[in-house]
C-alpha cells in the first residue's frame, strides 16, 4: 500500500448522492417546498447529479477530478466543500478551513482592487492583519500599481481582473483546497508565474482537490484521481491509470461522434 493510501482521511464520502429538481418553474416550486418541509419528492421529478459516490480526500494527497461536461465535477467540489448539502449517503469532514477557489468568485466590481483583496481574504478566512502583511506581496504578484488598486474593479480589463483574482487566491493557505478549473492564467509571463504559484499553493495546503479538463495538468499535479461519468464514479485510484482510462474514453467518444 502506498503512503498516500495510509495517510489520514480528511474528507470521507460514502455512497453520496445529490439531486436537483427539473421541469417547469411551477414544478420546481412545488418540489422545493416539498423538499424543504421534509416531504417526499417523486422520483421522476428528481435529477441525480451525483449518486453512489465514494471518495476519500487524504492528507498530503492531491486528488484530481476529471470527466466530461455535465458529469458532476463541479457539483462534487461544491458538495465536498460544504456549499451544497447532500441527499443520501455520508460525508464526514474532519478539517477546519476549506476553500473552493474558482477565478473571479467573490470579486465585487463596485469595490476597488485594494478592497477586493481584503474582501476575498476575509471570505477565505484570513484575518485583516494577515491580509495587510500579505498586501505588498499580493500587489507585487498581480503587477497592479497603487493607482490601479484604488480604482473600482469594473474599470479593469479582463486580464487585470484575472491577475487580481489569481493573486488573491494564491496567497491563501486552507487545510483543504478545492481548485475548480483554476490553471495557469494570463499572458505568457504571468502564466509561468501563476503555474509556479499554483504548485506552491498545492504544496502548502494539507490536501488539494483539483477539477479540470486538462488531463496533462492533472497527471503532472495529482497523486490520485476520480473519473466521473454521468454522476457516478467510473474509476478511481492512482492518478495515471485513471486519467489514461478517461483519456482513452474521451478519444473513442470523440471518434464515435
Amino acid at each position: 500500500m502506498s503512503d498516500a493510501k495510509q495517510s489520514e482521511v480528511v474528507i470521507e464520502c460514502r455512497d453520496m448522492g445529490i439531486w436537483f429538481t427539473r421541469g417547469s418553474r411551477r414544478t420546481m416550486l412545488r418540489q422545493a417546498m416539498r423538499r424543504a418541509f421534509g416531504r417526499t419528492v417523486p422520483e421522476d421529478s428528481r435529477f441525480w447529479a451525483l449518486r453512489h459516490v465514494d471518495v476519500d480526500v487524504r492528507a498530503g494527497v492531491r486528488l484530481g477530478v476529471c470527466g466530461s461536461n455535465g458529469s458532476g465535477k463541479t457539483t462534487l467540489m461544491r458538495v465536498l466543500s460544504g456549499i451544497y448539502g447532500h441527499d443520501e449517503g455520508i460525508i464526514d469532514r474532519r478539517e477546519g478551513t476549506m476553500s473552493l477557489l474558482s477565478l473571479g468568485a467573490g470579486i465585487s466590481h463596485h469595490l476597488s482592487g485594494r478592497d477586493n483583496i481584503y474582501l476575498l481574504g476575509s471570505l477565505n478566512g484570513l484575518p485583516r492583519d494577515q491580509i495587510t502583511e500579505l498586501y505588498a506581496e499580493i500587489q507585487d504578484f498581480c503587477e497592479l500599481d497603487d493607482d490601479v488598486l484604488r480604482t473600482p474593479v469594473r474599470y479593469y480589463s479582463n486580464g487585470m481582473r484575472t491577475r487580481l483574482g489569481f493573486a488573491i487566491v494564491a496567497f491563501i493557505t486552507p487545510d483543504v483546497l478545492f481548485l475548480d478549473e483554476i490553471m495557469a492564467v494570463g499572458d505568457t509571463t504571468f502564466r509561468s508565474k501563476s503555474a509556479a504559484k499554483l504548485q506552491e499553493l498545492a504544496r502548502r495546503a494539507r490536501c488539494v482537490v483539483i477539477c479540470s479538463h486538462d488531463i496533462g495538468f492533472l497527471k503532472r499535479h495529482c497523486d490520485e484521481a476520480v473519473w466521473l461519468h454521468e454522476g457516478v464514479v467510473r474509476a478511481s485510484g492512482d492518478a495515471v491509470p485513471v486519467l489514461n482510462e478517461y483519456a482513452d474514453f474521451a478519444i473513442s467518444a470523440r471518434q464515435v461522434s
Partner: peptide
C-alpha cells in the same frame, strides 16, 4: 448568487 455557489460562505 455567484459568491454563494462558489465559496463555502
Amino acid at each position: 448568487a455567484s459568491l454563494l455557489t462558489s465559496m463555502p460562505v
